[in-house]
Design a binder for these strands. Structure first.
Length: 809
DNA sequence: AGCACGCCGACT
DNA sequence: GTCGGCGTGCTC
């Protein structure tokens, strides 16, 4: 049936308008039994050679003069047909080039590497006299052989035109090399080359002086299997020469084996067995394994309070998955991919787990990936991109902390791991479990519509109570003369906690400054009258602007609510809090964790390790300390300013605030000591703060969904955010206004087009940024938007104009 | 993205 | 008259 494989549709590794579709190539006979859908191939494209992925094999061409596939680059195709399909779907839904989507699914080392080399032409044409610099170049290439083009260009007296001239004269050849960045680690292994009896005879025949050779041979008499050369030499204290002479005699043989780097080599994990489940956990477990056993695609929201033992449910469900010969993916936010978490999975599944985290080198990541591709492991645990783990028979996908925004990739391809998980789940008839204490509002909404089954874990394991939560009204503090960052209650609690020898976590949810404007007397935050979104302070012209609808007004002299003049541009940095602690509590030991102290690799783990070891009394940090940490001695959690996130110009602000407060509160009192939480805020009555403090999750989601519905935000519509950017302000204004007009015209009556308005960050990297929002429900609108964008791109005469598209809901 | 093809200014 | 500037368009 090779005729069926005679034509390959290839997505080439070229990102440009017009290359966002496959190109057909002829498959030479010799490649027909190795080429598959998902194979990485080398092809000629235009005037050069590039890498590409086979996305379809057929017997029919859509084009007359096909070029051949030059080469299939891997023995095992990096992508499965299912992943190819997934990639094309992603390109479609994420508005990116297919190659961008396909490349995102494989380890970075497989991305194409292109280099050009210069060498002497094999049929070097003699003849005309050469100029001295030509002579020198040719002489050097004769000496050094083939050299990279960039290297040669750097040689004295060599220019592009000189090389071009010599190529024309058939004296030099410039060739393109397409490869990847793969390095494979190889080790040498030794094994007997003859039978046991022959070995025995050879041993007897050895001269008595050949002590080392004797030892080596007797080793293989006992254990005839291959051993790594280095291990053999080390254990017998032998040298290379003895092995070499045995190889020479034909008694032993050496072989090169490719070795997979094991990032956990030499580390042992205590093997654990599944503990009995609580009745609630048992119910969740059954909800997962029911459809799993039936081989039916199913989606479950595992809504469990912090400390309710979700991980144990995952572990046992994975176990069940493996027993059925299927595989599992576990996604966790990068930040909670801590050694403790890894140890838990390694402890249960040992060598059947591949761990993919950002700390791995390119090569290690590739090796973990290959273990998955080859079926050597059956469980993959990792951050967002682990959703592409190339399993062939997925049974279960778990997304832990499913509400986390890190599951959405900010760069192209802008995919959401949750949506990818659903798609893969359908393809494999697998069960998808979303676990969290604070589901995304969309997820709750979907569960309400029956798109997911919601399973609740309402109790903490071993009956530990949720911590006591106090909300402190910071307006009151100010009124009573406390101008410190710390309320009296938090000061007191902190002092008591540390004097008992326990630890505290202080949480400040934003680094540096934010730009919302707050009245310190009454807590009023200035909001847009049309959008219920905080106004943003613009220093340049001292105005307040709404980043959603464009409304602008001057900064008022006095608070519109209470007439106080204590109006303030809000913002407190972690450094300032640290200074304040030093002032109020001399001698208290603080570990500060923010972007500044953790940008070094491994710094995160190191700081947490030191805190866990009791080297500090207080852990002070931003977002990054909100989840995952579980230290037995932490009994106090303080939230310095719960408002900072609440007033970001984002329709998810209330949701994020609620999630964050609930998550940080969950950090206190997870073990035998009881916990306490103090939340400081200027908006104690805001529902996201009040309901988080009272752990009233149900009311929060009810209220938030109502608010979204009233203001028409996702999940009650879908939302496009188009970001126009350009180094010139005038140009981006014009382009975005024009685009907005065109969109309004095209989508009239079908969608709401808002803007353009300045982006949250109006200028970034010397580019001015404007946004246009499109609210819609009809999927046809998405197609229309895509068409308009394509049209705009095609006739954009300005190459500096960039349009990026984001989609919510 | 690259590179050729193609149509207008300053040089052997 | 030619070398080369970079606008336009295509790549199976």
């Amino acid at each position: 049936m090779t005729a069926e494989k005679s034509i390959a549709a290839v997505v080439v590794d070229v990102v440009a308008r017009g290359t966002d579709r496959p190109f057909d190539y002829h498959v030479p006979e010799t490649l027909r039994d190795v080429i598959e859908v998902g194979s990485r191939v080398r092809v000629s494209f235009g005037h050069r050679k590039v890498m590409g992925y086979v996305v379809r094999l057929s017997g029919e061409a859509s084009y007359g003069r096909l070029k051949p596939i030059l080469d299939v680059m891997d023995l095992v195709p990096p992508l499965t047909p299912e992943l190819v399909d997934l990639g094309l779907w992603m390109a479609e839904t994420c508005f990116c080039h297919p190659i961008t989507a396909l490349n995102a699914m494989v380890p970075a080392v497989l991305k194409g590497r292109y280099r050009r080399v210069v060498r002497i032409h094999p049929r070097f044409a003699p003849g005309t006299v050469l100029a001295p610099e030509e002579e020198a170049l040719i002489e050097r290439l004769r000496r050094e052989g083939e050299r990279p083009l960039e290297t040669v260009l750097a040689w004295p007296g060599v220019s592009r035109s000189l090389i071009r001239q010599l190529v024309r004269e058939r004296r030099l050849l410039v060739e393109e090399r397409v490869g990847d960045r793969v390095t494979r680690r190889r080790t040498r292994w030794v094994k007997p080359a003859v039978s046991g009896q022959a070995l025995r005879r050879a041993l007897d025949a050895l001269p008595p002086r050949a002590l080392r050779q004797r030892e080596i041979l007797s080793h293989f008499l006992d254990r005839p299997e291959a051993v790594p050369l280095s291990r053999l030499l080390a254990s017998l204290k032998a040298g290379r020469s003895s092995v070499d002479s045995l190889v020479e005699k034909g008694l032993l043989q050496l072989e090169e084996r490719e070795e997979l780097r094991d990032p956990f080599a030499g580390r042992s994990f205590e093997q654990t067995s599944p503990p009995p489940l609580t009745p609630e956990q048992e119910r969740a477990f059954r909800a997962i394994v029911g459809p799993l056993r039936e081989g039916r695609h199913h989606r479950i929201l595992l809504h469990g309070v912090t400390g309710s033992g979700k991980t144990e449910v995952y572990l046992q469900a994975i176990d069940e998955t493996l027993k059925r010969g299927r595989q599992a993916i576990v996604l966790v936010p990068e930040i909670s991919l801590t050694p403790q978490m890894v140890a838990r999975f390694k402890g249960r599944f040992g060598p059947r787990v591949a761990v993919l985290h950002s700390g791995l080198s390119g090569g290690e990541r590739f090796d973990e990936w290959r273990k998955i591709r080859s079926g050597e492991v059956q469980v993959a645990i990792g951050a967002r991109s682990a959703i592409f783990a190339p399993f062939s028979n997925l049974g279960l996908i778990v997304i832990d902390e499913e509400h986390e925004s890190s599951y959405k990739q900010e760069e192209q391809p802008k995919y959401h791991a949750r949506e990818v998980a659903f798609r893969r789940g359908m393809a494999h008839r697998a069960v998808v479990v979303l676990g969290t204490a604070t589901p995304a509002v969309e997820t709750i909404h979907r569960a309400g519509r029956g798109e997911l089954e919601r399973v609740v874990l309402s109790r903490r394991v071993q009956g530990r109570p949720l911590p006591r939560v106090d909300v402190v009204d910071m307006r009151e503090e100010l009124r009573e003369g406390n101008r410190s960052i710390f309320s009296r209650m938090l000061q007191e609690a902190l002092e008591q906690c540390v004097s008992r020898g326990e630890q505290a976590v202080l949480f400040l949810n934003r680094r540096g400054f934010s730009t919302f404007v707050l009245c310190r007397a009454c807590g009023k935050v200035l909001e847009c009258s049309h959008c219920d979104i905080s106004l943003t302070f613009h220093r340049t012209n001292r105005t307040l602007r709404c980043h959603y609808c464009g409304h602008a007004e001057p900064v008022p002299e006095a608070c519109p609510a209470c007439d106080s003049t204590h109006i303030r541009y809000f913002g407190t940095g972690t450094q300032r809090v640290e200074e304040e602690i030093a002032r109020l509590f001399p001698g208290m030991r603080v570990i500060r964790m923010d972007v500044d102290t953790t940008n070094r690799k491994g710094a995160h783990e190191e700081l947490l390790g030191r805190f866990g070891a009791g080297e500090a009394d207080v852990l002070l940090g931003t977002q990054m300390i909100a989840k995952g940490l579980d230290f037995p001695r932490v009994t106090l959690v303080g939230v310095i300013a719960a408002d900072t996130m609440l007033h970001l110009p984002d329709f998810r602000a209330a949701e994020r605030t609620f999630q964050l407060l609930t998550q940080v509160s969950g950090r206190a009192g997870r073990h035998n000591l009881s916990g306490r939480v103090v939340i400081q805020t200027y908006s104690p009555m805001h529902y996201s703060i009040d309901l988080a403090a009272r752990a009233d999750t149900e009311s929060f989601y009810r209220k938030e969904l109502l608010s979204r519905k009233q203001h028409r935000y996702p999940p009650f519509c879908r939302l496009f955010t188009l970001l126009f950017s350009h180094p010139d302000r005038q140009a981006v204004m014009q382009a975005s206004f024009e685009a907005s007009r065109l969109l309004k015209q095209t989508l009239a009556g079908r969608a709401e087009v808002l803007g353009p308005v300045p982006a949250t960050i109006p200028r970034m990297k010397d580019r001015y940024r404007l946004q246009v929002f499109i609210k819609y429900t009809d999927e046809e609108v998405a197609k229309a938007v895509k068409k308009v964008l394509r049209h705009l791109e095609e006739r954009a005469e300005d190459p500096e104009l960039r349009i990026s598209v984001d989609r919510d809901g």
